[in-house]
Each structure stands twice: as structure tokens, then as C-alpha cells.
Design a protein around this nucleic acid. Structure first.
Lengths: 209, 209
DNA sequence: ACGTGTGAACCGATTCACAGCA
DNA sequence: TGCTGTGAATCGGTTCACACGT
């Protein structure tokens, strides 16, 4: 029943949620599909089709209640309740996420951080204590963390990812430019900055100049 | 002529390139499509079709010369020559990119960095001098930089993006969770960490558990 | 009259299957 | 025989267009 929902639809739900929050902050209480998504270069039909996979949330002839729809999309994504996240690797990139204040708005909490460098561990970065990687199993297990940001150097990525899975992590956001080989039931998303740059160069080179 | 190439194909070219480089480092000189892409969960037919948009690079009954194909894909993407990149916003995230040694492998050079905080500017971070944002036009123009990593806080993203375009930047990699409104001919790619996390949660919630 | 919700039509990307060459 | 390159078939996602409820 839920399997046939396009990946792209789920991605767009995030965008919708963000736009809705901005409208809410601006004091808007009702929007039409057209008003909501035209600034995102998405068609109103696409928006309505996306929502239709999950139910009917608008009122015909009227539009959508901003507040209610924020709640509904949050419920769909599962981010209506808070999720704990572990940061693994506290180099500059990992540190950036530990200190990023924006996650809480999305209901994500950096609940643990790990490094294998003893000169970095046992210190607090904000309210998060950097633990030695040897303590991963204990801490992740105790705090029941399911999500991890993998920010270790490339050469350690695969090995660390396996260790995370063994600690109970179910989904990994991977920032290293390697394809992780993990069990089928583990979800991996890659954030590939160099790859994005390559794509930008390709577009520059072909269209425009 | 180049317009009908799927976006997804270009994305995969990056992956192929990465795998080929790893094979080269391992001393492999010839691979079949199957050997190359099966660890990436991509079908060999997909790989061959992707390449066929650009030409015929293999030998029937044999496979592909690793070295030659690395060169060909680099030429296709445009990353066979080096590209200068500007980092805008030198908070933790921007700093992470300035110090990231991995870009050079992909032929990207951090050629400039900017911040609006006078306490950060006029200092060197590695070999890169942090310039005041007021000097963007001069520096970007002089160095002919076309690519920018936008790492400023959310509230400054749109305004800074416009400024970048006015300085001659043609493509922006946007790390803030806002949709940038820019002229048609400017290429934007979004790296949306919170959105990726939302997607991971959705997958966890629906499949797994 | 207005804007949603949705089956049907369309379009583009992936997969299939095989001809062709080493 | 083995593996590439590619038209044809298939699959899935987007867009269209309109019935329906307010």
C-alpha cells in the first residue's frame, strides 16, 4: 500500500512543509495549491497528486488550512515527534552539524557524537559530549538512536558504517564519497558535494557557458 | 542535442567515475560493465545506455579500458580541467569545505572565501584568505570564478545568492533550507540535510520497524 | 464560481533482448 | 563465446482535464 509512492513525492513533501511553515509565520491561515507551490516551480496538479497518495486534506473551492496541513505532512513523514541523531566523526563537518541550531526546527536532536581521536573525546561541544567510538554500542543502545550522520574520513566510512549497524542504527546519512555496502534493511542516503559540483559543471558546460 | 540527456544519467556518471578511479588505484586496467556497476546496485544495461548518449567507449566482447574511460567521463562532465570555487559564509560548514582536502581529487579548487563578519575576514584559513563580502565582485571577477558554495545562515541566503549572481557566479550549491529565486540561466543545486533526514525517517517509519 | 481530488493520457527513463563485433 | 551498443517494449511518474463538493 505504501510501496508505490514515488520517492520524488516524499522529497517534495519536505519542500511543502517548509513553505507551509513560512506561510504560517507570515500569518496566512488558508492557501490554495497554486499559491503554495508556484514559487517552488512545482505545478499545483503535482502537489495535489502528491497529497492524494495519503488522503484528502483540502476543501474544494477553498484550499488548505496551513496549520492542519503542517500537522498532516509531519505525521506522514514521521517528524511530528522528535528523532534522536548521532553524529559520527567530529571533524569540521561533523562539528558543523553538532552546532547547527536549525535541526530542532525539524524535530531532530543531536543526541550523541563520537570520534576515535582521544584528544577530541570526553569534551562537550555545546550540550553534546563527544564520546570515544568504543562507547558507541553502549550509548546508541541506551539512547535508542536510530539515525546517524556519517562524517568520518573516506577511508573509514565503510568500516564505521558497519559498526553503526551493529550498534542498532537503522538509517545513515553518508557524507563521504563512497558507496556503502550494507544489509538490505539499512537505509542509506548519500550527500555528495563533489558529485553535485560535477553536475553543476556539466550543466554550465552544456547549456549556458 | 544535449538537452535530452536524463539528469539521472549525469548523476550516475559521477558514480562511475568514482568506481573507475578506485579500480585504477587497485591496478585494474579493463572492466566489463557488469563488474563495474554491480556493487553500485545499478544494472549493466543502465550503464551502457548512459554511456551511449555520449558515444561508444568500450570494446565488444572485452569491456572498457579503465584509464581511457576515466578520461572520457571527465571530458563529458567537464572536470578534466580544474574549476575554481568560492565559499560564501565561513561558519562551521563553510570552514569545513575550505579545509576539505578531498576536492582537489575531483579537480575543484577553493579559490576564494567570503564572510561579512570583520572578526573573521583578512585571515588565512589554510591557503585561502577570507575576504569581506564587500570585495566579492572584485575577487570573483578577477579570478573568473563561476561556482559558489552558499553556506550563509538561512535568513541571508536569498540576498547573498542575488549578490553572487551580480558578481558573475553562474552556478550555486545551496546548503540553506530555502528555495532560491534566481534568474533562469543560473543553475542551483540544493543540499538539504534536514530534508534527507526527513526522508530517512519516512523510510524507517513505513518499510522497516 | 472556485479549487480540490483523481482517472486517463502522456512522456520520459529504465529494462529487455538481441544484433554486431572482437 | 563474451560483452558492447541500441532499438523496442515496459514501467513509472507527471500532466491533463474534468467531475465533485462548497
Amino acid at each position: 500500500m505504501a510501496a508505490e509512492i514515488p520517492n520524488a513525492t516524499v522529497k517534495r513533501l519536505s519542500y511543502y512543509l517548509r513553505s507551509l511553515r513560512r506561510l504560517k509565520d507570515a500569518g496566512v491561515s488558508v492557501v490554495s495549491s497554486e499559491e503554495l507551490v508556484s514559487p517552488l516551480n512545482i505545478s499545483s496538479a503535482q502537489f495535489r497528486k502528491d497529497l492524494s497518495y495519503f488522503g484528502a486534506f483540502g476543501r474544494k473551492g477553498v484550499g488548505y488550512r496551513v496549520d492542519a496541513l503542517i500537522g498532516e505532512i509531519g505525521k506522514i513523514l514521521g517528524t511530528d515527534s522528535a528523532w534522536k541523531v548521532a553524529v559520527v566523526g567530529t571533524g569540521r563537518l561533523g562539528s558543523a552539524f553538532i552546532s547547527y541550531p536549525g535541526f530542532s526546527k525539524f524535530n531532530f536532536i543531536i543526541a550523541a557524537a563520537f570520534d576515535n581521536d582521544p584528544s577530541k573525546t570526553e569534551k562537550f561541544r555545546g550540550s553534546v559530549k563527544i564520546e570515544n567510538i568504543a562507547r558507541m554500542k553502549e550509548v546508541i543502545g541506551r539512547k535508542k538512536i536510530k539515525l546517524a550522520l556519517l562524517c568520518v574520513p573516506q577511508h573509514a566510512a565503510q568500516k564505521t558504517a558497519i559498526a553503526l549497524v551493529n550498534c542498532g542504527i537503522r538509517a545513515i546519512l553518508n557524507f563521504s564519497p563512497v558507496h556503502l555496502l550494507l544489509p538490505e534493511d539499512i537505509t542509506v542516503a548519500d550527500v555528495d558535494v563533489a558529485g553535485e559540483l560535477e553536475r553543476l559543471v556539466y550543466t554550465l558546460k552544456t547549456s549556458g557557458r
